[in-house]
Each structure stands twice: as C-alpha cells, then as structure tokens.
C-alpha cells in the first residue's frame, strides 16, 4: 500500500493543517507517514503546497507525475497541480475561486470554472468538484474549508484510514473552542463524499 497525496491552495486556506490532519490520522492507523511543507511566503497571498505520503514510500517530496491524490482548495490551483498528476490520479477540488491579484487588477482573466473542470477531467482517472466553501459555511465557519476537503476525500474512500481516526486527530490538533465546528465540517465533508460515491 502506498498513498501519495498532494495538497494545493492559497495562503490562509489552512492547507498545512489539512495535511497534518491526514498525517496524524495515518499515524494513528499505524502507517509509516511523512509530510513536506514549504514555508515562507504563505502569508503573502502566494500559492501554498504540501504533501503527505504513507505506506510504502520514503520520500515525502512529490515530483511531477507522482501524486495519487490531489486535494485542491482552489480551482486555478487545481489546474496548476496538473503536472503532479498522472493518468491514474484522482483530483478532489473545491470549486469556489479566489482570484489572484493578477486577475483582480485586470492584467489577466480567470478561466471559467467549467473550462477548468473540463480540462482536468480529460486528463485524470477521477475528478470530483464540490463547493466545499458552502459546506464549511453551513458547518459554521469558512475557515473549516480545510477540514471539509479532507472529509470529502475520506468520504470518497480515497485514504484507507478509519473515519473515527480523523476525529481523534482533529481533537489533538485544535483547541477545544474550535473543535465542535470542525467535527461538524469533517462529518459534512465525509457525508458529501459518500453521497457522490453512491450517485
């Protein structure tokens, strides 16, 4: 068994916490797990990417073509993650955009979400697009998008880790006052993932 998961999004979306959530759950499940992060410019509105690998894999760094699963927190960044994928990859994408400054300032145009979805769909084995932000908002906080996205991947059955371990991992990572909202977000994500497997 080997899972190589790549996470990508924009500074402030809680990508490192999402990565760690998967990592801690994998550790509880008894896997050999490692993660890599790139720190530095995250607070300055740039792209943030990280990776978590577990099972039969030593290197935590994912090169082009090496991601089994991509969790993209933002549509444009999902597109930017394509080189990390291969034909067998699965991409899970939050489809609510955060236009970069190059777009808001009128220098370039943000591609349409349906174009982005079409391009990605044509390349990889499976592609799921959700409005994760709406789910997070329903659960009580936009900031819980990161936990919703992990929940969706769990619900889709992509991670091979028992659901309950994610709740345990959340409790170890978050202060008590944020826990209820995030558990709600996790479960909403899981339910959404499970429903789309059935449909």
């Amino acid at each position: 068994m080997r899972k190589r998961i790549f996470l990508i999004g924009v500074g402030g979306q809680g990508i490192l916490l999402a990565t760690r959530l998967i990592g801690e759950a994998a550790l509880y499940a008894g896997f050999n797990v490692s993660m890599s992060e790139v720190h530095g410019m995250a607070q300055r509105g740039g792209v943030v990417e990280s990776a978590v690998v577990f099972g039969n894999r030593h290197s935590p760094v994912l090169a082009d073509g090496e991601a089994d699963i991509v969790i993209a927190f933002e549509p444009l960044e999902a597109l930017r993650a394509l080189p990390k994928c291969n034909k067998e990859s699965v991409i899970v994408m939050n489809n609510s955009p955060i236009p970069p400054f190059t777009v808001t300032s009128g220098i370039s145009d943000y591609p349409s979400i349906s174009d982005i979805e079409m391009i990605i769909k044509s390349k990889v084995k499976a592609f799921y697009s959700f409005n994760g932000l709406a789910v997070a908002r329903d659960a009580g906080s936009d900031k819980a998008l990161n936990v919703v996205m992990v929940g969706i991947a769990v619900g889709l059955g992509l991670l091979d880790i028992d659901e309950a371990l994610f709740e345990k991992a959340l409790a170890s990572l978050l202060p008590d006052r944020l826990l209820a909202t995030n558990i709600k977000a996790l479960n909403a994500g899981i339910a959404l993932g499970q429903n789309s497997v059935r449909s």
Partner: peptide, 19 residues
C-alpha cells in the same frame, strides 16, 4: 515513457505580494 501533464499556458499567475 510517462506523459507529464502541463499547466495550460496563459493561466493567471499568483505571485506573493505585499499585504
């Protein structure tokens, strides 16, 4: 030989910026 996907050209950049 494995196909490496490319990012479509001319998609908007997201450079870091002064806050």
């Amino acid at each position: 030989q494995e196909e490496i996907f490319t990012v479509p050209s001319n998609i908007p950049a997201r450079p870091p910026n002064l806050c």
